[in-house]
Write a protein that binds this DNA or RNA. Structure first.
Lengths: 210, 210
DNA sequence: CTAAGATACGGAACACGGTTCCGCTAGACA
DNA sequence: TGTCTAGCGGAACCGTGTTCCGTATCTTAG
């Protein structure tokens, strides 16, 4: 699955002067618990959405809440750990689509829908996105770090070919798409994909001023 | 203001056969408290956002929480009561813009921005929107009832003049705009108005299929 | 193999939100 | 002015995320 995510890398004994006494190995039960938590979280999130209570995840992993919190200091860290590899896959798809699609714009459209599918399969992923006090949840940061550069390249290429003219940044677009998908359980009245397509197709329009 | 909302209409003595004994008048303190609550809620919401705790509103009104709950059975009912007249104003602006603006599309653009301003001035209004279990918060319903018809007309006119070609319904558009504005404290990195404009300008584009 | 001690654990406790309950107050009517 | 009940206050309840702390367990030196 992908749980080799040390979550917080081991900064013990980074003391410059002291001849550190061969730092201890990480306890095996710690590793085991972390894995169990990630697996439990993945399945609980899949079943009950990302909003599932932490206690439920801890219980499913057969572990106390404190243990969960030691490995993942905050709810959103857990979410990020669970979905990191999917975000990576999405990031990797960018250049691939640029190569395979007929035009940069077509590539962008498909890529954005990939992103929508990613967000869409986990109801309420956005709740994690929003809850940021000063603008940075772990998920927010992950997405900005991994996805924004990818989309930035795609947009640049689409601009070079004059397919895209609206002055929108990759960050703005990604965030907008996130907001759109955010709280939308499948609903016949409201197809998110259609709306996202609408948004993306706006990129080809010169923007009116107000 | 608009508080003649009996919250739950008086079903006392709806007994078909009995000659009901001239039902009591509503207690004056009840009316007074309802007004105080609405006033307090308006100012608290303005100061702390719509997410302000109910207790805070009750305290500001100088009443107990139970009183608040008797008048407004749920949080979102309170929110709706506070903002109802603003929604009305927004609805009224639709036909006016259609008449005053250069084109139906221009009218739509301006109207949508009016709506954005309405939502935007109250951080987190969307939280009320989303919290709907089966699809209907009070606010959701209010907006659908009042605003969707207005935008529907505007879209029809814009389609008649071929300015709008994308097959999007008023409901979809309003909901999308709501989602976009939803969780966005003013942020230099991310100007909601720009994104909304992007979305709206997509209406002029033939939609690509995926 | 054993013992010391760091590391990690479990679950109770805390803070904080919406909502409900219930004994009592005070307004309406006679 | 007295009765009766609509309406009130605020404590209590439930369900969140998060923290605390006494204890168990793993690692490692000897």
């Amino acid at each position: 699955m992908f749980h080799n995510t040390p979550a917080a890398c081991d900064h013990r004994s980074v003391n410059a002067s002291a001849p550190r006494p061969a730092a201890r190995r990480r306890r095996t039960d710690a590793k085991r618990n972390e894995d169990a938590l990630l697996e439990a979280a993945a399945s609980v999130f899949a079943a009950s959405g990302v909003d599932a209570p932490v206690r439920e995840v801890a219980a499913a992993a057969g572990v106390g809440v404190a243990t969960l919190y030691r490995h993942f200091p905050t709810r959103s860290d857990l979410v990020v750990a669970v979905y990191r590899h999917q975000v990576d896959a999405c990031a990797d798809a960018g250049p691939a689509l640029l190569a395979s699609e007929a035009s940069p714009f077509a590539a962008i459209l498909r890529w954005v829908h990939l992103y929508v599918d990613f967000l869409g399969t986990k109801h309420g992923l956005a709740r994690v996105w929003e809850g940021d006090p000063d603008g940075f949840t772990a998920l927010h940061r992950l997405i900005v770090d991994r996805l924004v550069p990818v989309l930035t390249d795609m947009l640049a290429e689409a601009r070079a070919s004059a397919e895209v003219v609206a002055p929108i940044t990759a960050y703005q677009l990604i965030r907008a798409v996130g907001d759109l998908v955010a709280f939308n359980p499948p609903d016949p009245q409201y197809d998110v994909r259609r709306i996202v397509t609408l948004l993306v197709s706006g990129l080809r329009q010169q923007q009116p001023h107000p």
